[in-house]
């Protein structure tokens, strides 16, 4: 277990010390979301209507941009090979890296989301559900994304392929995440949507590390 936490804290420390990566992801999220009021027009009723969807899509794209960070650098400097021959099973090693990615790349997005939601004129009551839906659903983004990242790890032009592989699998999370927030805005119970999001997270927590580990073994063999 200590090996698990050591890999986790190593990845977190690497991400924090390379602070620029974190601020760049956040700025991308903010800028991408800012484009919508400019593109659609500043009418508050429309913004409140599209807000949940825009924030979810923005978070999803920002998360996707950071996926290559999970394995790419370690693959290039050879430390991935070292980690894979270590005592920790590859599946757990992958899970530690995924958790570190979620904590450093996705959680900051969730923290800033309520501020952006207010600029979209979303009702204050729905902000909690918005953050909660992201909190429950976004682990799926890191987990599924890790499979795509592992599959494309050795490729020269993996970025475009990564989005083609990963985005179709993100769609169910997006649908239920937005549905939860819209239910909350309409003062309907959002519980069932949130439960489904949690179920997605739990399910992919089981499947994705195994698939990523299989893909990584393929990449380094």
């Amino acid at each position: 277990m200590s090996a698990f936490f050591r890999i986790f804290s190593r990845d977190v420390r690497l991400a924090v010390r390379q602070g620029s990566a974190l601020t760049m992801t956040l700025s991308f999220f903010v800028i991408a979301v800012t484009l919508f009021p400019l593109g659609v027009g500043p009418e508050l009723s429309i913004l409140a209507r599209i807000g949940p969807g825009v924030l979810w899509v923005g978070a999803l794209l920002a998360c996707m941009l950071t996926l290559d960070r999970i394995f790419q650098a370690d693959y290039e400097d050879g430390s991935l090979d070292q980690l894979m021959v270590g005592t920790l099973p590859v599946e757990l090693m992958v899970l530690a890296k995924i958790l570190a990615h979620w904590l450093t790349a996705v959680v900051p997005l969730i923290i800033i989301t309520p501020v952006l939601a207010i600029t979209f004129n979303m009702p204050l009551d729905s902000l909690g559900v918005m953050a909660l839906s992201l909190l429950l659903g976004s682990p799926v983004l890191s987990l599924i994304g890790s499979v795509g990242a592992a599959l494309t790890v050795g490729m020269r032009r993996g970025g475009v392929l990564l989005s083609l592989l990963v985005l179709p699998l993100y769609i169910p999370v997006l649908i239920f995440g937005v549905a939860a927030v819209e239910a909350a805005i309409a003062l309907l119970p959002a519980g069932s949507h949130l439960l489904l999001l949690a179920a997605f997270s739990a399910g992919s927590l089981v499947i994705c590390p195994i698939a990523s580990a299989a893909a990584l073994r393929l990449a380094v063999e």
Binding site: V147, L151, T152, G158, L161, P168, A215
Partner: peptide
């Protein structure tokens, strides 16, 4: 995506395995 990942690898046996992971998850 499945067809794209077959194109992305030079090594056919690697491509087969990568594509298998993708198609099973999908």
């Amino acid at each position: 995506g499945y067809m794209a990942i077959w194109e992305a690898f030079d090594d056919q046996s690697k491509a087969a395995k990568a594509a298998a992971i993708l198609v099973i998850i999908g």
